[in-house]
Design a protein around this nucleic acid. Structure first.
Length: 871
RNA sequence: GGGCGAUUAACUCAGUGGUAGAGUGCUACUUUCACACGGUAGAAGUCAGAGGUUCGAAUCCUCUAUCGCCCACCA
């Protein structure tokens, strides 16, 4: 066996271990038959680098995958990346800008070449980072949303939905980003509470000196007004019926229409109607057949319909228009006004609602089956309370604008015939029209990135072909993702999965929280508080970072990231390292693991506890309670395996005897490594490789199973009283300032024969852990004043006083303990005197209370005796 | 306007009906031969507040307060 270095240095082996696994080919599912587990990655953007959210999600993916794999499942974690339309196009355009050129200059084909080249150069960054994290995904099945097979799936879905009438093209108000110069879906618009102004403007009534006053937050849109509206029941409307008003600046005469969408209480009760730049106004315009002139171009500048303001930026135009209205005495007042303004998710530019011809998916018919699937439990959300949000959104779903005016993405599979005007929607380029004409123009737009993401669980497995992978690994078992993309992604996958495979794409969805900084703030690049997982892995090791995340991964709950915790779990890794080091140093050479013999108390205890822990960890993982599983293992390794088990066996091991206890030690450590492996794969594998082992890799070995038969409850109970005794003695030593190096004479007194026999059998353990040179066990302790007294359960403890102890401090301590016992006795008395409690509480609870009461009374008496002695 | 969540030790969080938990921090002692990224012992909480249900409530119900998030076309 190699000697281990004295401390844990993750950089020394993480990379090597990952290469060891990968070259072993062990990330691919082990077999084509038998039980299988499958999970597909939420594909990160190729432009991205690993952030803490990824680190959390992928850690959990890996924990589940490794756990399932070690439980004998053919486990597939399918990795891949997303082409991320807008984000990627922006990055490459920025690059072009630096080269003093632009995508328009390059043209579509050459631009796309550039993006592919960019992807080749930089797109692998995130998958490299995924490897540093230890992700055991099957790289042979890695997919990219723009792979030919996945594009084929996208086109197949598009054509099918189009032919069914679920995809249509039309002119509606869409969210337009003037910077990205594309339409956005509602979800890609971030409403932000903004301090704006409400402008009150006079619109003169034609042929009268009267005017109506309208209130607006966006005066520049007035150039596109084609009416003003009032509520039909508004008495102020009656005299104005059939009147026309003169639109200031433009001089256009526009009607006054009655529409009950108008809120009589807000502003002046009169609304300007701009059908081409406001979704409400668009509806009003339709109802009243109003013209809808668009007054801005795609870059946010006023266009030729804006008269003299043409060519001016929308915000500049706003200023100038307000100035002019002021000058013309048409501006009544300006009020401060807080309201929600939509911003582009990608670039934060104020979104402009604009009338535009786009492609849409009709969502209602897709949403209904998706609602049903969650309602009847075919898809289970963890935690379940997110179902309400999910239903809420789907119940009120609106059609999805899927066309984007970008070049990077899946181009819409629609061709227009320049000869006959025919529209052809085909999976492959039809080449010529049904009219015989060959002058076909493909639609210029590409699809929303999320359109291809929605197909991810099945498109990655080969759909629409009925591939063996699709048959075996679909539906997937689990989806792990953050709650903030339930609408973007989770809901849409469920809709598309049901529509095209008649199956839910996954049976369970574990929703993680978001990672926050130590102050609880959301991490973001712009705030500058983002922490890079790569940095943390370099500083603390991938395992420590994984453990930090896992132990805080409560479903749906945000995680504040504290450096202190990372330090703590690095120390935990170091503890494990040194526990293994201890075993290696003390293990006899060439130990025969087949050796038999009688197990010691310590052997039986650690075996029982390991099995109990295996049961709880398996149960916790089965319920996705990662934090609970990690917590259990943390406590078990540190505070049981190291603090007690190793301490108990130390004296035996000095002898380096090749006995059965040495085998138990080795096996227990290996089981601890197995239990911890899904959480801390690198260090556990590294240690496993250095210990005698039979399997080629820890990752391939069997996860410790739940074996009730191996759990000896009697031994566990006995250990608890041994621990209580040892702690009580240590307490006496510590409180009375007995030199830690001094070996004491320890006297125990118990009226119970059984107990005396037990202490006798524990003699050597007690002597070592209490630092006692002599141990006497009596029925009753003699009345002598020259000793310190303590209590553990029904046993009294006595240590002869050598130096004069601090009696005053001792008295205070005993008094405090006595008071504590008395308080609890009083509480229990009330309970046990209560007839209702005795008759209605379960028998077990009553019995426990009675037992506790007896124990406390005995303890109280002993403490009182001690107090009498030292007073 | 609707919905969801949080409020537990100094800090960060677990804990969903039966004796209040963890990590960090804190205090004292301790470089003893796996580990000072260590060891031993200890102090520390009216479980936001008020009512209710129950033999019993941090946990279930109602209300209140504070904070956070999501959804929503009041110009």
């Amino acid at each position: 066996m190699d000697r281990l270095a004295k401390s844990y240095e993750p950089q020394d082996f993480e990379k090597r271990i990952y290469e060891f696994w990968e070259s072993g080919g062990w990330f691919a599912p082990a077999s084509d038959t038998g039980p299988r587990f499958s999970i597909s990655i939420p594909p990160p953007n190729i432009t991205g680098s690993l952030h803490m959210g990824h680190a959390l999600q992928y850690t959990l993916h890996d924990i589940v995958t490794r756990w399932k794999r070690m439980n004998g499942y053919a486990a597939l974690w399918l990795p891949g990346t997303d082409h991320a339309g807008i984000a990627t196009q922006m990055v490459v355009e920025r690059q072009l800008h630096q080269e003093k050129t632009s995508r328009k200059e390059l043209g579509r084909a050459r631009f796309l070449e550039r993006v592919w080249k960019w992807r080749e150069e930089y797109g692998g960054r995130i998958t490299r980072q995924l490897r540093s994290l230890g992700s055991s995904c099957d790289w042979s099945r890695e997919r990219f949303t723009m792979d030919p097979a996945l594009s084929h799936a996208v086109r197949t879905v598009f054509v099918s939905l189009y032919r069914e009438g679920l995809i249509y093209r039309g002119e509606y108000i869409v969210n337009w980003c003037p910077r990205c110069q594309t339409a956005l879906s509602d979800l890609e618009v971030i409403p932000k509470d903004t301090a704006g102004k409400l402008y009150y403007i006079k619109y003169p009534v034609k042929g009268s000196r009267d005017y109506v006053v309208v209130a607006t937050t966006r005066p520049e849109t007035m150039l596109g007004d084609t009416a003003v509206a009032m509520h039909p029941d508004d008495e102020r409307a009656a005299p104005l019926k059939d009147a026309l008003v003169v639109l200031p600046i433009m001089g256009r005469e526009i009607p006054i229409v009655e529409d009950d969408f108008v809120d009589r209480e807000f502003g002046t009760g009169v609304v300007k109607v701009t059908p081409a730049h406001d979704p409400n106004d668009f509806e009003v315009g339709r109802r009243h057949s109003l013209p809808a002139p668009v007054v801005m171009d795609g870059t946010g500048k006023m266009n030729e319909n804006a008269g003299e303001y043409a060519g001016k930026d929308r915000f500049q135009a706003r200023k100038e228009i307000v100035q002019r209205l002021k000058k013309e005495k048409l501006l009544v007042k300006i009020e401060d006004h807080q309201h929600m303004v939509g911003h582009c998710q990608r670039c934060d530019t104020t979104v402009e609602p604009t009338l535009s011809k786009q492609w849409f998916v009709k969502m209602k018919p897709l949403a209904e089956p998706a609602i049903a699937a969650v309602r009847d439990g075919r898809v289970r959300l963890v935690p379940e309370n997110w179902a309400k949000t999910y239903f809420e959104w789907l119940d009120n779903i609106r059609d999805w604008c899927i066309s984007r005016q970008l070049w990077w993405g899946h181009r819409i599979p629609v061709w227009y015939c320049e000869d006959c005007g025919n529209v052809l929607c085909e999976v492959a380029d039809p080449g010529r029209c049904t009219c015989g004409g060959s002058r076909l123009q493909q639609d210029e737009d590409v699809l929303d990135t999320w359109f291809s993401s929605a197909l991810w669980p099945f498109s990655t497995l080969g759909w629409p072909a009925q591939t063996p992978d699709l048959t075996r690994y679909y539906p997937t078992d689990l989806l792990i993702t953050a709650y903030d993309i339930i609408f973007f992604w989770v809901a849409r996958m469920i809709m598309m999965g049901l529509k095209f495979t008649n199956e839910v794409p996954f049976r369970e969805v574990f929703l993680t929280g978001l990672i926050r900084d130590a102050e609880g703030q959301k991490m973001s690049k712009s705030k500058g508080n983002a922490i890079e997982p790569e940095r943390l892995m370099a500083e603390y090791g991938a395992d420590a970072m994984r453990f930090t995340l896992a132990i805080q991964a409560v479903a749906g709950t945000d995680i504040p990231l504290h450096p202190g915790r990372l330090k703590g779990y690095r120390a935990f890794a170091n503890k494990l390292w040194n526990a293994a080091r201890f075993v290696m140093i003390n293990l006899p050479e060439n130990l025969d693991e087949g050796i038999t013999g009688e197990l010691t108390f310590a052997d039986r205890w650690i075996t029982s506890r390991t099995n109990q822990v295996a049961i709880s960890v398996n149960t916790a993982l089965a319920g996705y309670r990662f934090h609970e599983a990690a917590e259990t293992l943390y406590h078990f390794l540190w505070h049981e395996f190291c603090d007690w088990y190793i301490e108990l066996v130390k004296p035996q091991l000095i002898a380096k005897e090749a006995n059965v206890s040495a085998v138990v030690l080795l096996r227990s450590l290996r089981n601890v490594l197995r239990l911890l492996h899904p959480f801390m794969p690198f260090i556990t594998e590294e240690l496993y490789q250095k210990l005698p082992h039979s399997e080629p890799a820890l990752m391939l070995s069997r996860y410790p199973a739940a074996q009730e038969s191996e759990v000896d409850l009697d031994v566990i109970r006995k250990m608890e009283s041994l621990q209580a005794l040892i702690t009580a003695v240590r307490n006496l030593r510590s409180e009375n300032s007995i030199d830690p190096a001094r070996k004491i004479d320890l006297v125990l007194g118990s009226p119970l024969l059984q107990e005396r026999v037990f202490w006798q059998s524990m003699q050597s353990y007690i002597a070592t852990l209490c630092r006692a040179k002599a141990l006497s066990i009596l029925e009753h302790l003699p009345e002598d004043k020259a000793s310190l007294r303590g209590v553990a359960g029904t046993t009294e403890i006595s240590i002869p006083i050598v130096d004069a102890g601090d009696l005053e401090a001792e008295r205070t301590r005993v008094e405090r303990e006595l008071a504590k016992a008395e308080d609890e006795i009083a509480l229990l008395n009330r309970k046990l005197d209560n007839q209702d409690f005795l008759s209605k509480a379960p028998e077990k609870v009553v019995q426990e209370a009675q037992q506790r009461h007896r124990d406390l009374v005995a303890r109280k008496e002993k403490l009182e005796a001690i107090l009498r002695r030292i007073t």
